[in-house]
Simulated assay, not measured.
Amino acid sequence: MEWKTENNCLTKEFVLKNFKEAVRFVNQVMPLAEAADHHPDLLIHSYKKVKVMLMTHSEGKITEKDHLLARQIEAEFTKEFG
């Protein structure tokens, strides 16, 4: 699944093996977000799915900052779980 625009956010749902892996993925997103001074909304649901929602809150819209973090998150997921 590709990233898509939903409710004024850049979103993607990642499917992991189990709840433990979903939590581990969220914990790996955190330092990427902190380094970018960007704070995505992260939702763990259905025990193994993580929905990532990116929007630059100060701009009230999706910006290049969101696309950059999306690429970093995608690369981390592929490296660790893909």
Rank of each mutant, 00 (worst) to 15 (best):
M53R: 14
L32D: 10
Y47S: 09
T11P: 14
E21T: 13
E21Y: 10
A35F: 09
A36W: 09
L43P: 06
A35R: 15
E21C: 08
R24A: 07
P31E: 02
L16S: 04
H38T: 05
P31S: 03
A22M: 11
D41A: 01
V26W: 09
A33K: 10
L43M: 01
F19D: 00
K12F: 01
E21D: 14
A36N: 04
Y47F: 13
H38K: 03
C9D: 03
V50Y: 12
Y47E: 02
A22R: 12
Q28F: 11
L32G: 07
D41H: 05
L32I: 07
H38N: 02
C9N: 12
V29W: 09
P40N: 05
K48V: 01
F25Y: 12
P40H: 12
R24C: 06
M30H: 05
L54P: 10
V26K: 05
K51E: 01
I44Y: 07
N27P: 12
E34S: 06
D37E: 08
T11C: 15
F14H: 11
L42M: 13
E13S: 10
P31D: 04
M53K: 07
A22P: 15
S46N: 11
L42D: 02
C9F: 08
F25W: 13
R24T: 14
P40S: 08
H39P: 02
N18D: 15
K51P: 00
V29P: 01
E13A: 02
E21V: 11
D41P: 03
A35C: 01
K12A: 04
F19R: 07
L42Y: 10
T11M: 14
D41Y: 11
V26A: 08
K48R: 15
L43I: 15
D41T: 12
L32C: 02
N18E: 10
H39A: 02
F19P: 00
E13C: 12
P40T: 04
L54H: 07
F14L: 06
A22I: 14
K17V: 02
I44V: 15
H38V: 04
V52S: 09
I44H: 07
A33T: 09
Q28V: 06
R24V: 00
E13T: 15
H45W: 10
E34M: 03
T11E: 10
D37G: 01
M30G: 00
V29L: 14
P31R: 09
V15P: 00
P31M: 01
L32F: 05
V52A: 08
L43N: 00
Q28G: 07
V23D: 01
L10G: 01
A35D: 13
D41M: 03
N18I: 14
L16E: 00
N27A: 03
K12V: 03
Y47L: 02
V23M: 12
E34C: 01
E13H: 06
A36F: 04
R24P: 07
H39V: 05
R24Y: 13
N27D: 12
H45F: 12
D41F: 05
K20M: 11
E34V: 11
V26Q: 00
F14N: 05
K48D: 08
E21K: 10
C9T: 15
L16R: 02
P40R: 08
